[in-house]
Design a binder for these strands. Structure first.
Length: 283
DNA sequence: ACCAGCTCCTGCTTGC
DNA sequence: TGCAAGCAGGAGCTGG
């Protein structure tokens, strides 16, 4: 799925289209995403003005003028694409409506925002704005890795006593919000930490390095518009290009890009998911 | 409490 | 070329 940098890129692409816009029409073509869409979602959103778009971890949050919040998670294959109406017709790079276009928002200004999700692992919900902090999707999320509260000390506290491999621990959204398989692999490589190392057995100094590596890789990826692999696109339909900057992810057998390292990238499987790492410089 | 494994769904890639 | 298996960026649930 889209991880934090991809969701943030989508959010930034939607800001000029949705912030301040009123929804003239909301069409639900398929309500069975990961969970059923809340009943009456289309009616509840129709006529709303979107005040602000925010992001928490991998969740997009749209605050409306009715004191409600639309929560959107893109799952593994979710995309949000924007097109404009010209001459009364919508066009989307010439493409016809796709069978995986599940939810469509049309603004009064004539923009169309389409939620497309082939695998339907994504989800949406609507929540009262004053209860957003206790929404079950958000309540247990760990700190925002790009926020001021995040650092080595957070990781130290969350990892204490944990025997799970650090790779697996970092995928746990309760420890830090927004990381997925790609950026965990990349951050561990940048920090020189072996993905198999028990989370609770990493020194405070190295956890500082890890926290810094997480922030760096996320910032770099956002600056590049995210990573485009199979499904992900930016809201404008353009591809992100951070995938060209991967140091280890999906690079099995390639020489390790670390300065002066003679190792090669290896792929292992942890908790059923691919981990890419350099066994020489990651200890 | 913690952790590994399985599962949801579809589409693309790989290997025979 | 055709077909089936395997794999994919997430995360909730189960059971040890």
């Amino acid at each position: 799925m889209p991880e934090l940098p991809e969701v943030e890129t989508v959010r930034r692409g939607l800001v000029p289209v949705l912030e301040g816009a009123r929804l003239a029409q909301v069409i639900v073509r398929r309500a069975d995403l990961r969970y059923p869409l809340p009943p009456g979602l289309a009616e509840a959103l129709r006529g709303c003005r979107i005040e602000r778009l925010d992001r928490r971890g991998k969740y997009l949050l749209a605050f409306t003028d009715r004191e409600t919040v639309l929560l959107v998670h893109l799952g593994m294959s979710g995309r949000i694409l924007v097109s404009a109406r010209t001459l009364g017709q919508f066009h989307r790079g010439g493409a016809a409506a796709d069978r995986h276009d599940h939810v469509i928002l049309e603004t009064e200004d004539g923009a169309r925002v389409v939620y497309n999700d082939a695998r339907r692992f994504g989800a949406m919900d609507l929540c009262a704005a004053d209860r957003i902090g206790s929404h079950p999707w958000l309540a247990a999320l760990g700190p925002e890795p790009l926020g001021n509260a995040f650092g080595g000390a957070c990781l130290e506290a969350a990892f204490r006593g944990r025997r799970a491999p650090v790779k697996t621990a970092l995928l746990d959204q309760r420890i830090v919000a927004g990381l997925g398989n790609i950026y965990v692999c990349e951050a561990l490589h940048r920090a020189g930490i072996a993905p198999t190392r028990a989370a609770g057995r990493i020194s405070a100094k190295r956890l500082d390095r890890l926290a810094a590596a997480i922030r760096d890789v996320l910032r770099d990826a956002i600056a590049a518009g995210g990573s485009s692999l199979r499904d992900y696109r930016r809201a404008d339909g353009e591809l992100g290009y951070f995938q060209h900057a991967f140091r280890v992810y999906d690079r099995e057998g390639a020489p390790c890009p670390a300065e002066g390292c003679a190792g090669r990238v290896r792929r292992i499987v942890q908790a059923g998911r691919s981990t890419y790492h350099c066994p020489v410089c990651q200890r």
